[in-house]
Design a protein around this nucleic acid. Structure first.
Lengths: 174, 174
DNA sequence: TTGATTGCAAAGCATTTGCATGCTA
DNA sequence: TAGCATGCAAATGCTTTGCAATCAA
């Protein structure tokens, strides 16, 4: 939007990260900046390994360990959220300024559909209330077949787990 | 109930396992029997390691690997269900003749509350429908503080993860 | 200067696999 | 007897940790 060549994108997120770093007495580094930028530049669900693949193209000296540590940091800062889809890997998605949502995971092609239902949320709170339970966060996941895979079900053979790219389907929510 | 000394308990489950074994061309073994019996004799959420600890007391020669393999088998046979509570371990719970339910996990004491809401289930199906998604199974977990830990929150120090026994709270459902 | 950060290698941890031996059908 | 099951050890895959060198404040 601005004509400046300076990277101005994700300024809000960068400020949040900056504040978090200062509040904890930590330090700004080029690696952390690059990892944050790269993380914010994609809308995919990424593992540390995935993100490492991306940042490596820009800075090949950056280590996988640093990505692990920084994604943890981003999560603590409220910028990222950990998600698991059942393949024993930790994925990260944007958290700041992203509405809470749940996931449907296609067990055939690996596609992930994000959805949100205020009614379900309300009922969850209601249930928690019944048990005097005060929820801090939750996770709802549905596994099954997406519409495409239901259609092609008789023809296609099952994909090897992880062989397909994990597609993030953005949807009109609510 | 019967006066016989013979183990007659869990006969239905044993038959199911037996049928499953035969249908797949597998074999009955003392190890599998013992593991099934022991699994059914407790109402806890158990890891393979946990169950290994229990069966070892009866048959110290039985290997951890066999427990892993047998719990997988029981899951395929529909007698067990895998659950995860966020500590990167796979827990198993009874599945046959146990109604589907979801979990609230206390992040302070590790207590697990089982609950079921037909309304939530219905809304989930409704959401899935909207996306042409055909769900096969799902998982809903709420993390937070149970009523006891809310009360004692100011006094008690956080328990070391895994230090507390994982309590299974049975509740009136619906 | 001081202590946080990094990257590498090694360790951890839950789980799986290879393989020789044992046992069920 | 054939081949499934077992148990051990080793391998795996993801993630964390120890540590010496580096770098931000």
């Amino acid at each position: 939007m601005s004509g400046s060549e300076t990277v101005k994108e994700f300024q809000v997120e960068r400020d949040i990260f900056s504040d978090y770093i200062q509040s904890r007495g930590l330090r700004h580094t080029g690696q952390r900046d690059l990892i944050l930028q790269t993380f914010l530049s994609t809308e995919e669900h990424l593992t540390s390994e995935d993100l490492y693949g991306l940042v490596s193209k820009i800075d090949p000296t950056l280590g996988l360990t640093t990505v692990y540590r920084t994604l943890k940091l981003l999560t603590e800062a409220g910028l990222a959220r950990e998600v698991r889809f059942g393949d024993n890997k930790t994925y990260y998605e944007h958290h700041f300024n992203h509405e809470h949502h749940d996931h449907m995971i296609c067990t055939e092609c690996g596609k992930v559909i994000e959805f949100f239902s205020p009614d379900i949320e309300a009922l969850q709170d209601e249930m928690a209330d019944k048990f005097g339970f005060r929820p801090t966060h939750h996770s709802l996941r549905l596994w099954g077949l997406c519409s495409e895979c239901q259609a092609g079900n008789l023809i296609s053979e099952p994909a090897a787990p992880g062989a397909q790219p994990r597609v993030r389907v953005r949807t009109a929510m609510h």
